[in-house]
Design a protein around this nucleic acid. Sequence first.
DNA 1: GCAAGGTC
Length: 680
Amino acid sequence: MVTKVLCVAEKPSIAKAVANHLAGGQVTVRNVTGNQYLKNYCFHYNFPTWGPCDVNMTSVFGHLQSHDFADQYRYWKSCDPSQLFEARIETSVDESNKPVAKNIETQARYSSILYIWTDCDREGEHIGAEIRDVAVRSNPRLGERGKTVRARFSNIERAHIINAARSPVPLDEAQANAVSSRIELDLRTGASFTRNLTMSLQGMLPQQGDGQKSQVISYGSCQFPTLGFVVERYFRVRNFVPEQFWSIKVMHEKNGIKVNFRWARNHLFDRMVVVVLFERCLAAKKAKVDKVQTKPTSKWKPLPLTTVELQKCGSRFLRMDSHRVMQVAESLYTKGWISYPRTETDQFDRGMNLQALVQKQTQSRTWGQFAQGLMNGGFAQPRDGRNNDKAHPPIHPVNFVEQTALSAEEAKVYEFVARRFLACCSQDAKGSKTEIGISYGPETFNASGLTVLERNYLDVYPYDRWTSSQELPQFRAGEEFEPTEARIQDGKTSPPGYLTEPELIALMDANGIGTDATMAEHINKIKERKYVDTRPRGRRPRQDDNDDEASDYEAPAEHEAEPARGRGRGRGRGRGAAGRGSAAANGRNSGTSGVQEFIPTTLGVALIEGYDNMGFEISLAKPFLRKEMELKMKAICEGRKTRHEVTQETIEQYREVYMRTQQRMQVLKDSVRRYVTNQA
DNA sequence: GCAAGGTC
């Protein structure tokens, strides 16, 4: 008797790939009525665990089940919004998912093993549990121990998949429970606060002119902190008070080359101190060369491409907002040109055959030559970043396609993905850096020069700049000279800019707001809700100093440790600023850059201000609540808390905030009135 | 009319 195994993947692409790997070409593909993308792949496979089997491999399309309040709570005026904290929640299968669920039920009836092939992350574990739920409806025995298993895999390389097929593991119930908790909390808090805000405040907003329904004022654990970041930066810009500073400038001309030396103290905010130090320099008459050092340096090639990085680069280099970049990337993925575009992973699996992928790119008329160079010995294993979601590899081109076969936007994104991949597979850029240190009286000054020796990856990756500086004249250690020019220079600190999209994404990423797949949606949501406006960043003179950019929040992680400081970084930039690596790009593009900046509307400001002024210990406007939820989910995954405990204690927390919001709704109304009414 | 998370 041949064992029947039902395999279910999270998406059709995985089902297809896994079926092809396991079946070795002997696959029968059957369409399923009701959904043109849904297929059953039938083949034989000899699983070590169960022996020779008849396999049916199919998929879902992400979450299979939906959750909503029971009927008596579903309509806005049917209950007080606070009742939604305990209202019964029903689980169902959406109309669009009915054919998918039916297919699983039908197939499960004849199967003795349910083998889950969803992504190996928390959501994937929950989707696995949803699939099991549906399968058990028609075949209860699949609910028995050992009858439902899952595959552990992190990419769809043949060897990796075959290996995963050999060693099924149980579903991780803890992870699935953590997600159940998240789903429930997001629904209860989102719906209750949204209804309450909308019904309390909408009368105060200007009526929509075109006879539309008046707007929804929504709360969500992700959209509110996202708005909070925009507002926080807005106030830092608005409240910025420029501060004057002074520095000592030393220039020396030698062999016809003018060298500017940077003061080791950069600048000071006390003019008298600078004057005194300057006079001591002058009194010394001569400067002395302390150090002449030439050493090799390099500019590291970029890390393998993650979704967040793709979105940031899209804003910076391709002039597409994150939402658009993702749409385009998805279409490239569905057409089979690039790998799955939603990934947090910046490490390529050691087992992956990267050279085969490089080989495909040799066909390109523009970067094919470079790819050929990699095939001829230039190839180097990509760097490893710090992130691995164990579900997907970094974004990379899987097949070559002519630019002309794509839309203009697709071509731009494909080119970026291809060039980024080739850059990852090549060598770091190499250069030579000379540093000259002088002492002038009691003060020290430095100058540095860079010579780029081998461009390497830079040749295929025009998005990075690294150029030789003007050559430095020869100096000898111990040499003395009287500087051609020495004087005091003054300047003032300049305000930070409004938040740009790449900065916002970086903040969300660092604070765990949303996932790689949803960050762009949250940004879109706060635009849709009219909490923020965007506009292209205009020309804005940037001065050297932005010490005031420090933020109260987690600053974006510094993903790249660049050894080279070729472009001279000795500026006290706050960590929360545009981020390293972008400095050159922003500088280059300032004035004409396509980067969008975010400015809160009066409504957006009113909401955030309103909650901040209510004086809770934890404001809904700040990212800490969401972060706490993330920690609690982790606790469930690690068995330190139960789903029930987390749900209950979090509900109580929000209920408290809700009640106090009710009590102080007047504060919020005043805030809205102050801002929104003034606008008119 | 509501959230955030999957995915086509």
